[in-house]
């Protein structure tokens, strides 16, 4: 009873904050699209008029593209934009005419979400395991080395990792493809050639995602394990003569808990990093879509992609928090313990 209420309250809080963030982002992109030098909305309207459309037709055609009318007060335009967003209408793409922005984003989303999830999972497993070792061996050479690898990788920007990996494994020693999501020779579908090619092309992006967030995990896990090592219950367990494996499990279970709060931040960070990774590996995900929409002046697509990336981060936050509630018994019972 209390447990359900506590979880509901937490999720409700997250949802409220998420809605505020999405609203802020939508407002920002509305004003940016409106303030872009050269006023693309008005320009579109005028060029349609010149093509011989009636003012009403041109207005409607422009509104289909951008989600708001080229005429009217700022407030009317804002309400129009928000209204179409609430209907799930992000406008139409300009660079690929006649295609809904939502359609393009839907096609790109899986190219971002799957590698990001794979990278998060891999880096989490790797970082947590190495973090425990780094903590136990913290006065030895191995621990020093692991901790240093963590701080360095944590400090290096994603694009440096990506570019270095490509330089090594695609240019100097070409064993992996330098870009693209899949070979064009294969027929898309569930045949082994196509899937093999998909995986082959995903190696470098996923490894880059993994290395980019591995540093954070190992550092956080190390400091958590060091803190737990000083706790009385570990000493008690050792004094009781419990097997090392069991002590190890006590240790890992308690040290790993706080990491789940970082999980959300990490996914958000990787979503941002996807812009660089997809640009480097020419991977057709949301990040590449955003950059390309800016360089091709496709502003409806730009606003939509920005909004969807934000929604992705909000959803990741809520999921990570739910996960935390399920795992941590203290939160589960309403935070009284």
């Amino acid at each position: 009873m209390t447990r359900g209420a506590a979880i509901t309250r937490r999720v409700a809080g997250h949802l409220a904050r998420g809605v505020v963030m999405i609203w802020v982002v939508a407002t920002v992109s509305f004003f940016i699209i409106r303030e872009i030098p050269g006023d693309p909305v008005q320009g579109m309207y005028e060029s349609l008029l010149q093509k011989g459309m009636s003012p009403q037709q041109a207005e409607r055609a422009t509104a289909v593209l951008y989600g708001f009318l080229p005429k009217g007060t700022l407030w009317d335009q804002y309400v129009g934009y928000m209204g179409s967003l609430l209907h799930g209408d992000l406008g139409q793409s300009l660079s690929t005419p006649g295609v809904q922005v939502t359609h393009l984003i839907g096609a790109a989303a899986s190219w971002t979400v799957l590698p990001v999830l794979a990278g998060t999972l891999l880096s989490f497993l790797l970082g947590v395991t190495m973090g425990v070792y780094a903590a136990i061996r913290r006065s030895g050479k191995l621990g020093d080395l692991l901790a240093l690898s963590g701080s360095l990788l944590h400090g290096i920007p994603v694009y440096v990792i990506g570019l270095l990996l490509t330089a090594i494994f695609a240019t100097l020693w070409p064993i992996l493809p330098s870009g693209g999501p899949v070979d064009v020779d294969y027929v898309p579908g569930l045949n082994p050639g196509y899937i093999g090619s998909l995986l082959y092309h995903a190696v470098l992006p996923v490894v880059t995602y993994t290395l980019a967030s591995y540093g954070g995990w190992i550092l956080a896990m190390k400091s958590n394990v060091v803190a737990v090592l000083g706790d009385d219950f570990i000493l008690a367990a050792e004094l009781r003569g419990l097997k090392r494996g069991i002590v190890f499990r006590y240790l890992a279970r308690n040290a790993i808990l706080p990491l789940f709060t970082i999980l959300a931040l990490s996914i958000g960070m990787l979503f941002g990093g996807s812009i660089f990774i997809e640009e480097i590996f020419n991977y057709p995900g949301l990040g590449l879509l955003l950059v390309n929409s800016i360089s091709s002046r496709d502003y409806a697509l730009m606003g939509g992609t920005f909004l969807i990336i934000t929604v992705g981060i909000v959803v990741a936050n809520i999921v990570a928090d739910l996960l935390y509630t399920v795992i941590d018994p203290r939160v589960r019972s309403g935070g009284t313990a």
Partner: peptide, 19 residues
């Protein structure tokens, strides 16, 4: 502060660069 931390910075920078 929470909002500042949660907002996706890089996408925002890219979008801002248009204006």
């Amino acid at each position: 502060t929470d909002l500042n931390l949660a907002i996706p910075g890089l996408p925002l920078l890219l979008v801002l660069s248009t204006v």
